[in-house]
Design a protein around this nucleic acid. Structure first.
Lengths: 227, 227
DNA sequence: GCCGGATGTTAGGCACGTCTAATTCATCCG
DNA sequence: CGGATGAATTAGACGTGCCTAACATCCGGC
C-alpha cells in the first residue's frame, strides 16, 4: 500500500512555485513554463520537472499553460498570507522600509510556523493589507486579489486613489516612497507627456512627474470630486 | 583555477552541525560521531559524511573527536547569536512563552539576513542574554559561554542566584517558568532528599520541591548573605 | 588472549532541486 | 512550402543530505 502523494509535498521550492503560479495568474499573465522560469530564475527544464511533480501531487493541472487545483490554491494562499503578514510585521514592528520587506519576507516565509503566524497576526490586529496595499489572505475564507486599475492610462483630470504599489521593483518602490506615493494617498492626474514621457500628477498639491515605469507599478481607483 | 572551498559552504544543515558541535563543547561533553547523531537526530553515517565535508572546508578538525577551527567557531557563533536574538525577540516582542521560543528560533535562525539581525538587535537594545539566561554572542568580539554551577549538588543553606535554565527540555522549562524559577531569582537551597528525591528550596519565601531532572537544568552562582 | 559491544566508517541508494545539451513541436515569415 | 525561431520536454548529470547494511576497529572483561 504505497503512499498516494508522491513523497514529501510542501518543500520551500514547492511553495515558491505555487506562490509564483498564483501571483502570475492574478496579474493576468499566462502561466507558462518560460514565464515561471523567468520569475523564479531557474531553467525551463527545472520548471518542467517541478510541474510534473506538482501535477502528480494534484496541486496543478496542465492544459493550456498551468493552473492551480483547489488544493494548490489553498497552499499558495497560505504562503502568500505568511509572506504578506511578515512584510506587515517587519514594516510596522521593526520599522523596516517598504522596499526592503519583500526580500526579507521571501527568506522567512518558508520558516514560519502556524503558531508564530497566529501570534504575529494577533499582534498586528489581524491586518488585511500589507505595506504595499496587497491584500492579506485570511487564515480561512475567501480572498480577493483584484488589482484595480493602473495609474498608467488613467485620464488627465481624474482624482486617483492609490491602493496598491507593486513590490516587484525595489528601487522604484523606494523612490515612490520618498515621493510620498503610497496606499491611501490621492493623486490628481495631469498630463501624460507624449512619446514615453512622464505623467504629471499633483500629490497634496505638490507637482510630481512619474515616469512610465512608475505609473505601471501604481494601482488604485478613480474617485469622485474634482481637483 | 578551481575553487578552493569544496562547493557551497553554510547550508542550513552545515549551520546545525556547527552549532551543535559548539554547544556540545561548551557543555563539556565529548564531541563524537555518535553524540552528534544523537543530538541532531540523524544516523552515524550521516554525521561521518558531514564531518568529511566540514573537515575539507576547514571548519572542523578531527583528532580525538571533533573540534571547531577558528573559522568554524566564528560561523557557529553567528548561528548561536541569531538563535538567541530570535528567542529574545519572540519572548519580548511577541510575548511567546520561554518554553516555545527555542523551537521557533530553530526554524527561523537559518533564514535571518544580516540586515534583519541588526534591526532586531537594535530594537531589543543590544541584549546580552536570551530568555533562558544564555549569553548572546556579540556580532564581533569575544564570547563567554560558561555555565556557572548546577543547582544539583549545591549544598543546603546556600543562597543560589539562578543565571541560566537549560532550554533542552521544553516541558520542564514550562514547569519551572510556572513556578517562578527564571534567571535573576534567588533560591534558598534546602535539603536534598536522599535516593533521588527532590531538592527543597525557598523561592521568595515560598517552599518548592525540585526533582532531580529540574535541578540539573538550573545553573547559577552561590551568593553571599544568609537566609 | 579472545570475544562482545560500542563506535565509526565505507558502500550503495534515494529524494530533491538544479543544471546543460539535445530533441520535439508549433508557428511565423519569406 | 520550407526554414528559422521559440517554447517545451527528454536525457543525463551533479551536489546536498539523508538512509540502511555491512565492515572495521577498539576496548574492556572474563
Amino acid at each position: 500500500m504505497p503512499n498516494i502523494r508522491l513523497v514529501g509535498t510542501m518543500t520551500p521550492a514547492v511553495e515558491d512555485y505555487l506562490k509564483t503560479i498564483f501571483l502570475l495568474s492574478t496579474r493576468g499573465e499566462a502561466v507558462t513554463t518560460s514565464a515561471l522560469a523567468r520569475e523564479l530564475h531557474v531553467s525551463s527544464p527545472s520548471v518542467s520537472a517541478m510541474m510534473k511533480r506538482l501535477s502528480d501531487g494534484r496541486l496543478v493541472e496542465r492544459e493550456t499553460g498551468v493552473h492551480l487545483t483547489a488544493q494548490g490554491e489553498r497552499e499558495a494562499l497560505r504562503v502568500v498570507r505568511r509572506h504578506r503578514l511578515l512584510e506587515t510585521f517587519l514594516a510596522r514592528v521593526l520599522g523596516m522600509p517598504w522596499d526592503e520587506v519583500h526580500v526579507e519576507a521571501e527568506l522567512l516565509e518558508h520558516a514560519l510556523s502556524e503558531r508564530l503566524e497566529a501570534r504575529i497576526d494577533a499582534a498586528l490586529g489581524h491586518p488585511t493589507r500589507d505595506p504595499h496595499g496587497d491584500p492579506i489572505p485570511p487564515a480561512a475564507g475567501a480572498h480577493d486579489e483584484s488589482w484595480g486599475r493602473s495609474l498608467a492610462g488613467t485620464p488627465a483630470g481624474s482624482r486617483f486613489r492609490v491602493e496598491r504599489v507593486s513590490d516587484r521593483d525595489s528601487d522604484a518602490l523606494r523612490y515612490l516612497g520618498e515621493k510620498g506615493v503610497r496606499p491611501g494617498v490621492v493623486l490628481e492626474v495631469g498630463e501624460q507627456e507624449p512619446y514615453g514621457g512622464s505623467c504629471r500628477v499633483l500629490l497634496g498639491g505638490e507637482p510630481l512627474a512619474l515616469g512610465q515605469v512608475l505609473t505601471h507599478l501604481v494601482f488604485g481607483t478613480v474617485v469622485e470630486g474634482d481637483a
